[in-house]
């Protein structure tokens, strides 16, 4: 499978501008890249969250493809039902077209409140692609921590206080949890590596059965970065191995991006206002702890991918 930017740029992407997502919001860039990857019509679902509230304000919609928003925690079940309807009506000859099904949920709607719905849909084997756009907090409701929030981040429910320095504990490894469902395709990506994201979306749409892509997406408001720092910040996430790009195809892990030189995690954290307090003298040990966790995860991934580990 090859991706050609010239071809892609000619494609009509059924997601218009004029929506109310903030400038630099990673979610909209991810959605555009992923919809551009689809060759067949897509029926999409979106969980409650920034992506939904900012793109569907009645009587307007940014979606030029059929879309359903049901609730916060159930986009997987909702799209699984639409896909079931498709199978039923297709078998009866009432629908002829090839149609793909994609569900989009934020980290809150996926790692936390929607985990059960996601797990159920993946286990049942629906022919659908679930996309988590992970911006590391409940952004729509004002930057509350989720189980995807990086350790130490200052959020409105894990504030960097005098006693507790931001979010305690490391992130949940959702991609591994979904991979444990033994579905045909699981991957991690980010729109900063557009070719990687488009290619993975194409693969996910091609496999028979469920696919899952976890996409790191910035939130300039929540991360406290400038609007135009989205791509550079996401690149640093992969260059520090905070967010490795990998895929799991029928259980086989492969790493899709190895930074020439793995950068220290501080380089990713430093430009983000949500980590500012961690650079104070008394919190330095936390930076070390975070670096250790990144290294541990990266090495673990390399072992899974049968990469040599130093």
């Amino acid at each position: 499978m090859a991706v050609n930017i010239r071809e892609l740029s000619k494609k009509h992407i059924p997601f218009t501008g004029g929506h109310r997502l903030c400038a630099g919001c990673g979610a909209s860039i991810a959605v555009r890249q992923m919809l551009a990857a689809a060759d067949d019509p897509v029926v999409a679902g979106v969980a409650t969250g920034c992506l939904e509230v900012a793109t569907t304000i009645y009587p307007y919609t940014s979606w030029e493809t059929p879309l359903i928003h049901n609730a916060f925690e159930n986009v997987a079940a909702t799209i699984s039902g639409a896909e079931a309807a498709y199978r039923a009506l297709r078998a009866q000859g009432k629908v002829e077209k090839e149609i793909k099904f994609m569900a989009f949920g934020g980290d809150g709607g996926t790692y936390d409140i929607g985990l059960q719905s996601l797990s159920g849909a993946m286990e049942r084997g629906h022919n659908m692609v679930y996309v988590c756009y992970d911006n590391g907090a409940y952004m729509n409701t004002g930057i509350q921590r989720s189980s995807a929030t990086p350790m130490g981040a200052d959020t409105s429910t894990s504030p960097a206080g005098k006693k507790i320095p931001g979010k305690p504990g490391h992130r949940k490894n959702l991609t591994a949890i979904v991979a444990a469902h033994n579905i045909p395709y699981v991957a991690q990506s980010t729109p900063a590596h557009w070719r990687d994201l488009v290619l993975k979306t194409k693969k996910a749409l091609t496999v028979e059965g469920p696919a899952f892509i976890n996409v790191l997406a910035t939130c300039p408001r929540g991360w406290r970065i400038p609007d135009d720092a989205t791509i550079s910040t996401l690149r640093l996430a992969t260059d520090t191995c905070f967010w490795p790009l990998f895929e799991v195809e029928d259980g086989e892990y492969s790493i899709n991006y190895r930074p020439r030189e793995k950068k220290p995690i501080e380089e990713w954290m430093k430009p983000q206002g949500r980590f500012r307090h961690l650079f104070r003298e008394e919190n330095k040990h936390l930076l070390e702890e975070i670096q250790e966790e990144v290294d541990r995860n990266w090495n673990h991934l390399r072992r899974l991918a049968r990469d040599e580990v130093e």
């Binding site: 029926v43 679902g45 359903i68 049901n70 609730a71 159930n74 079940a77 909702t78 799209i79 699984s80 039902g81 639409a82 896909e83 079931a84 309807a85 498709y86 039923a88 009506l89 009432k94 719905s117």
Partner: peptide, 10 residues
Amino acid sequence: SAVVGAAAAG
């Protein structure tokens, strides 16, 4: 949730 998705799909 699934029957909502299914019913919305006709």
